[in-house]
């Protein structure tokens, strides 16, 4: 399974971007509620809205994490685990650009394996919420009926 690699450049100094990535109150403003601390080994949790499909909750909204690297102001890495899906690792690498006026952030996420990895990607961040309209709803309802038919046949 491939990793995710995304680059983004901000017109802000590296120290400012680092603070937004590592201050729990700032982190909540753009990412999720959390009890992050910038210390290697610190275990913390991100909390988001649970994701539901028609007949069951597919994600309770929690992501369990542990800080793996915290090298101010260039590298931050934490494990990222939304049970029952596999643990992935998210790493931010920061680099000064434009004589320190800007910062390039590289986001790398690895650890997607097998079917559950696919499922996790699908269930995350309201992917289902966005998709749960129109044809998909019909499809879900049809599949739910099939499932109950299969269950009564079994």
């Amino acid at each position: 399974m491939k990793d995710i690699n995304i680059d983004f450049t901000f017109q802000h100094p590296i120290s400012r971007v680092w603070r937004a990535l590592t201050d729990p109150d700032e982190l909540e403003q753009w990412l999720m509620k959390n009890d992050f601390k910038p210390e290697v080994g610190h275990k913390f949790m991100f909390r988001d809205k649970p994701v539901k499909m028609l007949w069951k909750e597919v994600w309770d909204g929690t992501t369990q994490c542990e800080v793996l690297a915290c090298d101010e102001p260039t590298k931050l890495s934490y494990s990222f685990h939304s049970p029952p899906n596999p643990k992935t690792i998210v790493t931010y690498t920061l680099e000064e650009v434009e004589q320190g006026k800007g910062t390039k952030v590289h986001v790398h996420q690895s650890g997607f394996h097998g079917f559950r990895g696919w499922m996790m990607r699908r269930a995350m961040n309201g992917g289902w919420r966005k998709l749960a309209t129109g044809k998909l709803l019909e499809s879900l309802e049809r599949l739910e009926k099939e499932e109950s038919a299969a269950a009564s046949n079994a």
């Binding site: 901000f10 802000h12 937004a20 700032e26 753009w30 269930a123 961040n125 992917g127």
Partner: peptide, 27 residues
């Protein structure tokens, strides 16, 4: 499905956009 469901790619792209807007509003 794997190609299509790049949810995390979308996720981080969206979140980096939010980070950018947050920083612009709180320089």
């Amino acid at each position: 499905v794997d190609d299509w469901i790049g949810y995390f790619e979308d996720y981080w792209t969206e979140k980096m956009g939010e980070l950018g807007r947050y920083l612009d509003a709180n320089p």
